[in-house]
């Protein structure tokens, strides 16, 4: 669809409807401020949080945690994924452990992570790492496996040495799939940071959520949720853009 005026009308129609209905309930006097505040209160709370600097502070703290955990998950998922795909023996060696760990949701690790690392930074980064690792690992593995074997035959004809083979066939060949893994991994990492911060933290967006609940301030809770949603969307947009710039040949 061409992004003309009609596109933007359709694009924004649903959010505007939701706001209108929400405001309608307020006008009809159906909203209680201690469970559901009107849209205007959310705007005011947002402005407060911007003014006192807590908005950027919380986003920043959560974002740094995501970066750390995601970075570790990316490095481990990529390297182990490539090695597993290229060396069947290495895959056999790691397979059982990975398959048993995979179905465990990262959130289920929170109690153990707190026992191990306390409620400091490490436990959060660890949970995020788990959330990012599995999708990146699995998609890297699949991506390398699905590379057309005819390219490897070509490499044999031209006596291509192994490092060059990895650099010029394995990685670009698996890149579309790796990028899918990265997008899933970032999404997961963001889910994990919120979960980890809700359970044990004194800062971050997840802490805003649990703080809002204990203060009976639904406006703070909703603002926290909106931050999670908006930041998540922006990160996915950025990754989609990177994907488009990186993979030009399809």
């Amino acid at each position: 669809m061409k992004k003309g005026l009609s596109y933007w009308l359709i694009y924004l129609a649903l959010p505007i409807c939701i706001l209108a209905v929400w405001e309608g309930f307020q006008i009809a006097g159906k909203l209680k401020p201690y469970t559901m505040p009107p849209p205007m209160t959310i705007v005011e709370t947002t402005l407060d949080y911007i003014k006192n600097g807590k908005l950027w502070e919380n986003i920043g703290i959560s974002f740094i945690r995501v970066l750390k955990g995601f970075g570790a998950g990316l490095a481990a998922g990529f390297v182990i994924g490539i090695l597993s795909a290229l060396f069947p023996k290495f895959e056999a060696f790691t397979e059982l452990v990975i398959q048993i760990l995979r179905p465990i949701p990262p959130i289920a690790w929170i109690p153990l992570a707190i026992l191990w690392f306390g409620i400091g930074e490490e436990s959060k980064v660890f949970i995020i790492f788990l959330g990012a690792f599995f999708p990146i690992f699995l998609n890297t593995l699949e991506g390398v496996r699905n590379i057309d074997s005819r390219y490897f035959e070509l490499a044999q004809v031209y006596e291509v040495p192994k490092p060059l083979l990895i650099w010029q066939i394995v990685i670009p060949g698996a890149l579309p799939s790796i990028m899918t893994g990265i997008r899933l991994g970032v999404g997961n990492a963001w889910v994990c940071v919120v979960a980890a911060e809700m359970i044990g933290a004194v800062s971050g967006v997840g802490h805003m959520l649990s703080d809002g609940r204990s203060l009976s301030r639904p406006d703070i809770v909703i603002l926290g949720m909106l931050i999670v949603g908006v930041v998540g969307k922006i990160m996915d947009d950025i990754l989609r853009l990177i994907n488009k710039k990186l993979i030009t040949w399809i």
């Binding site: 035959e153 070509l154 004809v157 031209y158 006596e159 010029q168 670009p172 060949g173 040949w249």
Partner: peptide, 20 residues
């Protein structure tokens, strides 16, 4: 013993790497 540069092979498909 195996394929090599001195035995050039043109496959039915062109087999160019799409990313290069």
């Amino acid at each position: 013993k195996g394929p090599s540069r001195e035995k050039g092979f043109i496959f039915q498909d062109h087999r160019l790497l799409p990313w290069l």
